[in-house]
Simulated assay, not measured.
Amino acid sequence: MKKMLIIGASGLVGTAIIDECKHDFDVYGTYHSIRTVLASNKQFQLGLQQPDQLKEIIRSVQPDIFVSCLRGEFDQQLEFHNRLALELQNTQSRLYYFSTANVFDGDFSMHHVETDIPVAESDYGNFKIKCENTLKQILGDRAIVIRIPAIWGKESPRMSLIRESIEGNKTIDAYSNLECNNLLDTQLAKQLRFIIQEELKGVFHLGSVYMMTHENFLKA
């Protein structure tokens, strides 16, 4: 059974991936402050500024598959992923990096596909572009980029914010001129498992089959 190490495993996406992949892979995970659902001997505390700890975890577990679901300050994340890629450079491990549809937030004139050159306006989108390029430069086709839309789940921060706004009788911003795609955490985990098991490479835009305005999505 291949070993999978999820970096940032305690979040919404990491938890869904653990649940989806735990029967097909030997799953390990890292967390920053909140522990994961994994057994104690399969989870490790790891901060963005702990390169020595990162090396120790990699050399101890020796994973075949890395999945990065990290969150945090952009410059620190970029440096972390640079160190991670350099550590994996002389291995056969594959890295699945969660990027974002925001790499195209500088051009809303059309729907974008995987072969389009990213054009970002936001700091978030530009950071993700830099991280994608860094990983691909170091790891080549062993860096698989997963671009995702807004991710929802029963306990997702987005869902919690809407509940709190309704309970507090607060205004919820909704945009009738913004067409968007959304995805459940459980759907994302299934899509990733398929990509990993089939050993697919490249850049993937994941989402549901439905496109609707932001306003209609919130109403639904």
Rank of each mutant, 00 (worst) to 15 (best):
M4G: 05
I7V: 06
I7A: 02
A9L: 07
G11D: 04
T15Y: 05
T15H: 06
Y28H: 06
G29A: 05
V37H: 03
L38I: 00
S40H: 08
G47W: 01
D52Q: 14
Q53C: 12
Q53E: 13
S60I: 07
F66A: 04
V67E: 05
S68H: 05
R71N: 14
Q76M: 10
Q77K: 04
F80D: 01
H81D: 01
N82H: 06
N82M: 03
R83P: 00
L84K: 01
L84S: 02
A85T: 02
L86N: 02
N90C: 13
Q92C: 11
S93D: 02
L95A: 04
Y96C: 10
Y97D: 01
Y97R: 03
S99A: 07
T100G: 07
V103E: 02
V103A: 05
V103R: 03
G106Q: 10
D107V: 10
D107I: 10
F108L: 14
I117C: 13
P118D: 09
V119R: 14
G125E: 08
N126A: 11
N126I: 10
F127W: 07
N133R: 11
T134G: 04
L139C: 04
L139E: 00
G140Q: 02
R142V: 04
I146P: 09
P149C: 12
P149R: 06
W152I: 14
W152V: 12
K154L: 15
E155M: 11
E155I: 11
E155Q: 13
R158Q: 15
S165D: 14
E167A: 15
D173L: 15
C180R: 15
C180S: 13
L184D: 08
L184M: 10
L184A: 09
K190E: 12
Q191F: 13
L192H: 03
Q197V: 09
E198G: 05
H205L: 12
V209Y: 11
H214M: 11
F217D: 07
L218D: 06
